[in-house]
Design a protein around this nucleic acid. Structure first.
Lengths: 231, 231
DNA sequence: TGGGATTTGTTCGTATGTATT
DNA sequence: GAATACATACGAACAAATCCC
């Protein structure tokens, strides 16, 4: 990619965060006009942003109808987790091979922040940080394609959680992240892979439970918040 | 996805095939005007097609410069193969688990056609069929996301072959495909996974050897051919 | 180095299809 | 069920940047 103008990129980031953090729920319509107005850009650019989000599976665009936040089906959800297990297992193997002590420090700091956010019941921060933990792992694997695919997949998992899971709960348990770090330090590939597999099984279990419905907030208001946060 | 008009879709398919089959070489510029003229559509639609190909890694689009056929670096190439091994290993595991005898028939027919194309030195057909073999495997895994990712990756492997490998050679050996089928039939996961790993190692070895340069054909002419073939 | 030709970036108007009353 | 309102699809035209001689 790397071809976006500054405005389209900030709109992309803002929309993506809003979806991931479950500030706009699956099924919410995303009219081009409204978004363009919020972010101060023309429909043409909005279309590009929506197209990208569609390609990443975060938005559904059927022709001639309003784009909307994607509502993953149960089948899609299972597929996403299946692929995620395969990719994250590979990440774990690569990390153990290329392990550097400073990685441990970085990851530990993240986990500590995660823990703090959880204590304070700051859902948005909590979701963001547990996502970032996995993004960092992908980065440490040293394979940028793996990073791109996992970035997509982790985002979609947030959406799955929003659809089938308990609302506003983060998908990851802090303890499980700590066990992963310990496994990396022990340089034991089998242990690290099985820690990751166990973690993802738990994430899937948490994600696929029934959920209560909630009052959706007005779209324009939510977008205004996210726009401000990104500038 | 599933939002393309008929014309954009045929242009997308045509361009993709042309790139995959190495009819237009990496680095070739893809001006919006020229493509729009060839396929009889406006620049708006061409831009959508190029954006999609860019997202799939087949085209490089830097801002304010002409899009061009992507030229993978050696690093990217290695990353692509690393991810491919992880995903195809998973595919193989799933196929063994969900194996049905008729899969064997389908795959055998494909391999026979591949063999025939190879005998006749029909490079285009040969490349297309060996790609289709892997596409079918992904399909048989029953996981459509896996299919999408592997579709992208197999395409990029063709591009890598065009950049670093012997020109106009297919990436797959027929014998290796036959061994895979045999492994599936034996219902032995370990054997199937190691057959796949060995196959992909061989593909990577074949893909990453030095290559001779060649005279590129005129872009307009090539596109006309591919347009006709797809309608 | 400079300037003309080419190519992309963006906007906006019209056409067409969808949802709603 | 028809008509109206609304949203998207598409394309023409203008502005700005890049390429090439």
């Amino acid at each position: 990619m790397a071809k976006d103008s500054p405005r389209t990129d900030s709109a992309y980031q803002a929309l993506k965060q809003a979806i991931i953090e479950q500030a706009i729920r699956p099924g919410t319509k995303l009219p081009e006009d409204l978004i363009g107005e919020q972010f101060g850009m023309s429909r043409t650019l909005v279309r590009a942003v929506l197209a990208r989000l569609t390609a990443e599976g975060l938005v559904d665009s059927t022709s001639r109808k309003s784009a909307m936040v994607a509502s993953p089906t149960m089948t899609e959800a299972r597929e996403v987790f299946e692929v995620r297990r395969a990719l994250e297992s590979e990440v774990v193997r690569l990390i153990v091979k290329r392990w550097k002590p400073e990685y441990g420090v970085t990851l530990e700091t993240l986990v500590r922040d995660e823990d703090a956010a959880r204590q304070k019941n700051d859902d948005r921060l909590s979701i963001r940080l547990s996502g970032e933990f996995h993004a960092r792992l992908a980065e440490m694997s040293g394979n940028s394609l793996l990073g791109r695919y996992l970035g997509e997949i982790v985002s979609r998992c947030s959406l799955i959680l929003a659809t089938f899971g308990r609302p506003h709960s983060s998908e990851c348990a802090v303890d499980e992240h700590r066990e992963l770090i310990a496994a990396f330090r022990s340089q034991d590939i089998a242990r690290a892979v099985s820690a990751m597999t166990a973690h993802l099984d738990a994430v899937e279990r948490r994600a696929l439970i029934a959920h209560d419905d909630e009052e959706p907030a007005p779209l324009a208001e939510v977008l205004a918040t996210y726009f401000a946060n990104n500038n």
